[in-house]
């Protein structure tokens, strides 16, 4: 059974020719529910790309 707010895991899996057990579907549903709830913790004023900012390589190793 899919969560009303989350993706229809079984349909998505079938579209990708992936067979999922009921336990796996339940686990994905639980993860999706928690992730949905966690949206409230996101700092929406943050520039998301900062998370993936590339750091320039260091010139010389210390050691």
């Amino acid at each position: 059974m899919s969560s009303s707010l989350g993706p229809a895991w079984k349909t998505i899996a079938e579209a990708q020719k992936i067979q999922l057990s009921e336990t796996s579907i339940q686990r994905l549903e639980a993860i999706a529910r928690t992730m949905l709830g966690l949206r409230g913790m996101i700092d929406w004023s943050e520039e998301p790309a900062q998370v993936f900012t590339a750091t320039p390589p260091t010139e010389k190793p210390v050691e």
Binding site: A13, L20, S21, L28, L38, R39, D43, P48, V51
Partner: peptide
């Protein structure tokens, strides 16, 4: 194989939000 299959279905949005939340926590 089951875990890899589950991973193939994780939405990109969830992965990206997870990285933002990770930094926050």
């Amino acid at each position: 194989a089951t875990l890899i299959d589950m991973g193939r279905l994780i939405p990109a949005t969830d992965y990206i939000q997870a990285q933002r939340l990770r930094r926050r926590i």
